[in-house]
Design a protein around this nucleic acid. Sequence first.
RNA 1: CGGGAUGUAGCACAGCCUGGUAGUGCGCUCGGUUCGGGACCGAGAGGCCGCAGGUUCAAAUCCUGCCAUCCCGACCA
Length: 567
Amino acid sequence: MRWSQTLIPTLREVPKDAEAVSHKLALRAGLIRQLSSGVYSYLPLGFRVLKKIVQIIREEMLRGGADEVLMPALHPAELWKASGRYESLGEDKIAFKNRSGHEFVLGPTHEEVITSLVGSSIKSFRDLPVNLFQIQTKFRDEARPRFGVIRTKEFIMKDAYSFDIDEKGLDENYRKMSEAYHRIFTRCGLTFQVVNADPGMMGGKMSQEFMVECPYGEDRVATSEGGYLASVDIAQRANPNLKTPAPKSEKPEVFDTPNLRTIEEIGKSFKVKPGQMLKTIIYRADGKPVAAVVPGDTEVNEGKLRRHLGASEIRQATPEEIESATGAPVGFAGPVGLKIPVICDWDVLGMADSVTGANQKDKHIRNVNLNRDFKPASFGDIRYVREGDKSPDGKGNLRLTTTMEIGHIFKLGTRYTECLNAVFVDEKGDRRPALMGCYGIGVNRILAAAIEEHHDDKGIKWPAEIAPFEIEIVTVNQDHLETREAAEKIYEELLREGREVFYDDRNERAGVKFNDADLIGIPLRVVVGERNLAAGNVEVKSRMTGETQLVSLRDLAKALSNQKKPA
RNA sequence: CGGGAUGUAGCACAGCCUGGUAGUGCGCUCGGUUCGGGACCGAGAGGCCGCAGGUUCAAAUCCUGCCAUCCCGACCA
């Protein structure tokens, strides 16, 4: 393709609020153009990258035994209602009614649709397993799109769904998909980690996230030297086995804290370190009130608390519920004298003479001590891990890194197949719901992640397999006849060989073209200029390594195919 | 949904406090000199100053409302 025939904007300046590196570079290099908040168009260069990524995904999914389908973007709302997930979609849902009053959802994900499709197609265990995937646009009315193409309202997703007759089959499909994901992300040039994750609202037993390190990511991962790796949502820590210090105080003392509710406010006004305070949060676990107590400088992890309690559902109490449980408005809860079960984090065992809410309006209480002043129902690991916590495998401490999720695989079990009636008849003649797995990849995010990982201050350095082109031809002086003729000849020849060539045939100064080439980041650059041409040579430069070499015109084709990455 | 900011030429911004002819840089057009790492000189074109009201002799500028965008938070397979 010739530059002059392509819609590539000359865009060197980027809005100052473009924060993420990948966002800035994608705009500057003319990969994308923003249409509105969280909605982007892909220009030719960006689209080529997407196409490459899509092709890699497609090949590896087929290799992994999945077959391709395409489901509609518009889903009947009845399906969603049947699965019970309609309401929980909340703000994300884009639903509307057509003229005849039918309600539709603009598909944010396709579990409901595929389950209904597969349910109506399978009869017997002989029809299973099936594993189907598609690559298409999803819509989610994100409350806050951000970081360019990292979180957008509309995005391209590869989603796959497997259906099996038993756990063994599900395990097998899950493993194959995991392997396919490893191949996909590796081919896309990404350094990634596989992290155990919280299955969350999707239900199911097991889930793993494929993460890349990225300062603009929205997830955090805990790692340790011993190889422990988990999303902070579920990351655990070893029990520090703290000994409770002897109280220095005689008895607790209530004091006035008018209008001071937060840990921060109290800390400031009374010179108390947050770590010396007991944060008490009231929850409803399966409808029953409980109080969770953690050090003031840590956060309660609801998922951990839920598992600790063995509850199936947990949520923060409403202000009214808090008032009835503690006798005080929000902001003054504490463990002393509470009538509801108190769950303490292990850390609390190591604290003495703490400050906490007094369960009275505008009052807190100091010199509070465990056992003497309050007696917890139980102890456990109920807070989010922090940098420096002991790794649960006992090997070293935890380190937290910011990451971006590029893929996620789940074992869903029968959650959808039961309510949407995707059942089959087994060998014994019994009707059973199929066991389901689902597997997603954010295609746009791979593009962003690749830029985040592979760039320098001049621009993008595309990994070979997803580069928009293999080779860019740059003429130093397009007006110079011999230069132009040589470049045209090289261009035509490479095209004939089936190479993907981008030809910067613009009548621009050399410096401009070199800088643009660095910015766009095509792996190989062939520079055709009068100086070298006189000796029958051109220059070949690698964007990744910066190496340059002089190659004679005669050997050019060979030199370039040596650079071609083995498939 | 809360907190903060910003809407002025294709793009990035200044001007606003203290009302008085619409500005700068990049890009674009024309002419010339340049031409192996973002050239220079000269001449031009291009704006309903987000929208609607109000105050005023006079509003990009002050006031009110709305809309949009961005940032922080809440939320998020």
